[in-house]
Amino acid sequence: MPQTRYFFRGERAEAERAYASLERAYEDEGAPLAIIELDEARAIFEVSAYLDVEEGGDRTPELAVAAGIAPERVGREDLPDKDWMADVLAALKPVRAGRFLVHGAHDRHRVAPNDLSIEIEAGQAFGTGHHGTTAGCLTMIERLWLRRQPQNALDLGTGSAVLAIGLAKLARIPVLATDIDPIAVRVASANVRSNGMSQMVSTSVSDGFRSRAIRERAPFDLIVANILAGPLISLARDFRRHLEPGGDVILSGILTHQRAAVLAAFRAQGMVHRRTLTREEWVTLHLSR
């Protein structure tokens, strides 16, 4: 049956509310949903729902009611009938970041004997390693490890747990991986198990640093956070409070024009900038206390 993408745009609060409503409305149908940020400065997001539609049919009114928006705000894009997952898998080539190789199960044969393999399936969302910020963090983790050997690490905003898995495989140390989104934590936990890292990586839901798991494990000598510049700036003080003296932080999710603001926030907390790694329009920062 042909599939149609229905979409609309709005400010963050409205988009997130509508996305949650659509999740409930189409849970039984299993319709794929997506939410992406189109304009960071104005906080404009686009929400999409991929629905099966009978020939000649239109589910715009139904979706508008489910999302709680006016029907005229809903756009429609008819998609060709094809195997989208096959296309996704073909496009997602393995990503090399130093010794790390982020790949799907379909590319296991590409893993060399000395590679640190991180297997993440397409469709498991929250970061497959193909974003420049993830590769930047993995590269920075390996560079840091060559000079310093952390013993207790936190991956804040872990998403799919790519960074936590990579760090545990490289350093063979315990890593706590947290995220504000319970769905992300479930995905992260599954990825940790499938990569054989359950003995080293533990996962937990946490709103920033506010969780029992973080309180029990702090202070950390390495905190990695690949989130967004705004949350990083607002959490700068909490990073310092949960970091051992002499400890390190690796930060990403930062656009090049946001670098100065993030550095200023962390320098105000007594952090020292060690290195910046740039990939396209994104930067990864290494600072220490």
Rank of each mutant, 00 (worst) to 15 (best):
Y19V: 01
A41S: 05
E37A: 14
E27W: 09
A105L: 09
D78E: 13
A67D: 03
D78Q: 06
R110K: 15
S117F: 02
A34P: 01
V74L: 15
D58L: 11
D52S: 12
A25R: 15
I44N: 00
E72S: 11
G98H: 11
A31I: 06
A70W: 01
R17M: 11
G57V: 08
E37P: 09
V65D: 12
G75F: 07
P94A: 07
G56E: 09
R108N: 10
L63C: 07
A18D: 09
K82N: 01
E77C: 06
Y19A: 12
E119Q: 15
A97G: 09
E16S: 10
A49S: 11
E46R: 15
V111L: 11
Y19R: 13
E29I: 13
Y50R: 00
P80N: 10
E23L: 13
D52N: 09
A91M: 11
P71Y: 06
V95S: 08
Y50A: 11
L101S: 10
E27G: 01
A105V: 06
P94K: 09
E55S: 11
A91Q: 14
R110F: 03
I36K: 08
G57E: 07
I36A: 14
K93C: 00
A91G: 11
R73G: 08
E37N: 14
V102S: 04
A97H: 11
V53G: 01
E23K: 13
A64W: 04
A43T: 09
R17T: 14
L51V: 12
S48K: 06
A31M: 10
W84G: 07
R42W: 05
A20V: 14
G57L: 03
R108L: 15
S48P: 05
L63K: 10
L92K: 12
K82T: 13
K82V: 15
S117H: 01
R17H: 11
V102G: 07
L33I: 05
V88M: 14
A18E: 12
A43C: 06
V74M: 14
A97C: 11
D39G: 00
E16C: 06
E37V: 13
A25C: 12
L79W: 08
V74D: 03
A64V: 10
A34W: 00
V95C: 04
H103N: 12
E55H: 06
R24M: 14
A66C: 03
V88R: 07
V102N: 02
A34V: 00
P61I: 04
A31R: 03
V95M: 13
L33P: 02
A67M: 03
A31H: 12
I36C: 08
I118N: 01
P113W: 02
A90Y: 03
G30H: 02
E37H: 02
A90F: 05
A105M: 01
A67I: 04
L79R: 12
S117N: 04
D107M: 02
E46W: 04
V74K: 03
A66R: 05
W84T: 05
V111T: 15
F45G: 00
D39H: 01
